[in-house]
Nucleic acid binder design. Sequence first.
DNA 1: GCGTTAGCATTGGCACGACCATTGGCCCGC
DNA 2: GCGGGCCAATGGTCGTGCCAATGCTAACGC
Lengths: 245, 245
Amino acid sequence: MFRPARPRRAFDEIIGQIRALIENGELKPGDRLPSERALAEQFAVSRNTVREALRMLEISGLVVLKRGATGGAFIAHADTATVTASLTDTLRLTDVSLADVTDAMRRITTVVTRAACENITDDDIAALEANLSEVARLTEAGEWERKAHVNLEFQRLLAQATGNPILAIITDSLVDVLGAVIARVGPLQDDFTLRSRRRLLKRLRERDADGAADEIERYLRRLHGLWLRGVGTEKPGRARARPGA
Amino acid sequence: MFRPARPRRAFDEIIGQIRALIENGELKPGDRLPSERALAEQFAVSRNTVREALRMLEISGLVVLKRGATGGAFIAHADTATVTASLTDTLRLTDVSLADVTDAMRRITTVVTRAACENITDDDIAALEANLSEVARLTEAGEWERKAHVNLEFQRLLAQATGNPILAIITDSLVDVLGAVIARVGPLQDDFTLRSRRRLLKRLRERDADGAADEIERYLRRLHGLWLRGVGTEKPGRARARPGA
DNA sequence: GCGTTAGCATTGGCACGACCATTGGCCCGC
DNA sequence: GCGGGCCAATGGTCGTGCCAATGCTAACGC
């Protein structure tokens, strides 16, 4: 019959108002919010409450805090880090096996590749080729750690080439999770990555979606197969002794 | 040459320690953290600092706060709401068109369907059939609002049928985003959904992955085509007058 | 005996005030 | 002109105190 007089906590109300301003476009990336003390006065709450609200906005990736005389809370620019972070957190709280991660990665990457083939530009291809050269250099130099990292970057670039930011964000998240996996199981010291990538780039240049998707699927099957044999069904988020180590 | 003496803020240190406990598995969903006062004492910080850390963990979806005598901070169970929220936030700050959302949804759903076909159980099929019956009932009753909602649920069930939680989470997030879109543009008053779903279920029962993927892709192309014609290139996060409304 | 209620302890929510550390601009002196 | 130190603004942290919500428990009334 009656609605609660104070429906939500004070800082929830505050972040609601600030979010609304962002959604309405009244606050745009780069804009600066009033100081904590000024906000406390305007909202008629204590500074602690304002700070708690800012903490939530900060970790949501909506604002960034800077200290000092010209500091304050600034509306953040778009960043996929918060999405990947929350996705990683959620996966950590879920019962996810390494096989689940690689399976999802392989399936998603396949459609991403197909989408990229439809929309890829010459600049995108150039970026992929530059990445490939870097991987080749690191492979030759035996810098496996960095090579694995740069190699993962390839998939981000591929996702960006789709021109669809959502596919890019999803790929980013999966790449982050896989990066954590690699950090645990150690980088693979291989050279079949290079050969597969060269074939893939050829398909991309020809705009051969089926061929490109097939190529990257074969590659990921082989790569992930090696991982799975190496670490069994280890959970990606947990530290565990490697069998045989 | 020198590392910073105090690398991060106090509450960053706190959330780091708590996150580490969760990652190590020492804290599991449902566990209760000490009270704010106790935490403040253990971390040797003030209660305000602890509260700010808890705010960040709360909005990260890692803990839930409850008031009262038996209240406190509890490790949360896995929930895709935070992923969805951050994804929505990021999309709001990014330049994302409705076409991007539907495009990603169509492509992801296609592989999800294929994956589901490989792993689906009879129970999963039964759940999908139950959902379909509900949609049929609501369509007949003309309850378009709820029909659209239950219909979206179909895709969640489909993703769950893959047995891969990552695919399920990604699908959940996309469904949520699309739900927000539907809420703005209004539900579609159609009946071709039912026919397509019946054909899809037939393919699923036969474990015909190619047929199922093809069926749902055709359906989504048609559905999303109607949406796009109806609302142009409207941003999914913004409220805007519908052309012709 | 049993349901109801009042009290109580615990815990999060919030306020006020104070001080510190950082930061960048301003002004002074060379 | 410019280099360095002063200074004001701002976020970071602390401490204390009180309020509100919550659930347990014991007293109470039927």
